[in-house]
């Protein structure tokens, strides 16, 4: 019996080593990561089916606002251009809407402030696992996109940001993100210029960040400068549709 138990113990230890080593090797194999990509499509399709395009993320009260709202990722783009914008109170900041639209736009912060604003107290969920509740104010993206009049072939909104993600600061590798037009047109998807009643601070993405309340934090870029409507994002940077996606995170960020 002790022999058998010894054998069982060794078998379990051996199996776990194989399992662990095997899983690590599998994680590097293209056929396996492609299969995991199919699972992402399944999750995306299932959540689309269950939630639909209009279901609203829970909204909270002022009493629920987190005492400390963690700022993550870039805390200051740190470029001379950005420092100049901070110095001038972002009066020359522009958000352009380009690509597959009938009417390209170039909007100043005052233009954004003149649009009807939505204020929402929502929960920010980081892919790392933490959450913070905050209040956000800004125009619905759907309103801006409607003014730009997307062409029928437009499928994604790509957001280009002011924060460089390489040590060299090469602007062609700034933070970027993309989402499908359905999520971009969601009522709670806003271009927020205010957080907890005050203008956005630099760590939180001043002057404007995207809020897409049914998505994880990395899908909600800060320091937004350009919104480009495209049919396909595979030619942009790493081709996966976003800075974190190019590093292996799933494009679908609803879970």
């Amino acid at each position: 019996m002790t022999d058998r138990r010894g054998f069982l113990g060794r078998a379990v230890a051996g199996a776990s080593t194989l399992l662990l080593g095997g899983c690590y090797d599998l994680s590097q194999k293209p056929w396996f990561t492609n299969a995991l990509g199919k699972v992402e499509d399944l999750t995306h399709a299932a959540q689309n089916l269950i939630a639909g395009p209009q279901a609203l993320a829970p909204e909270f009260t002022k009493a629920d606002i987190a005492p400390v709202f963690r700022a993550n990722g870039t805390l200051d783009p740190g470029t001379p251009e950005y420092a100049g914008h901070v110095g001038s109170g972002f009066k020359n900041w522009r958000i352009t809407v380009t690509g597959l639209v009938a009417h390209p736009l170039s909007l100043s912060l005052d233009d954004l402030r003149r649009l009807p604003a939505r204020t929402q107290i929502t929960r920010h969920d980081c892919v790392e696992g933490w959450s913070c509740i905050g209040e956000w104010t800004g125009p619905q993206l759907s309103r801006i996109l409607a003014a730009a009049a997307p062409k029928p072939e437009a499928r994604y909104a790509v957001f280009y940001c002011a924060d460089p993600m390489t040590a060299e600061g090469d602007p062609s590798h700034n933070y970027y993100e993309s989402m499908d037009l359905s999520e971009a047109m969601h009522p709670q998807t806003i271009l927020a210029y205010q957080m907890n009643g005050a203008p956005l601070t630099v760590p939180h993405g001043a002057p404007v960040r995207l809020r897409a309340e049914r998505q994880l934090g990395y899908k909600q870029p800060k320091y937004v400068q350009r919104i480009d409507l495209v049919a396909d994002y595979s030619a942009i940077q790493g081709g996966k549709g976003g800075y974190w996606e190019d590093l292996g995170y799933t494009w679908y960020g609803g879970i």
Binding site: Q47, A57, P58, G129, W130, G254
Partner: peptide
């Protein structure tokens, strides 16, 4: 419940007292 999209579909999942 940890999925923000699922929370938009089922506010009832808040019965767990919140995402955290």
């Amino acid at each position: 419940t940890m999925s923000p999209t699922m929370d938009s579909a089922f506010p009832l999942l808040e019965i767990f007292g919140g995402r955290q």
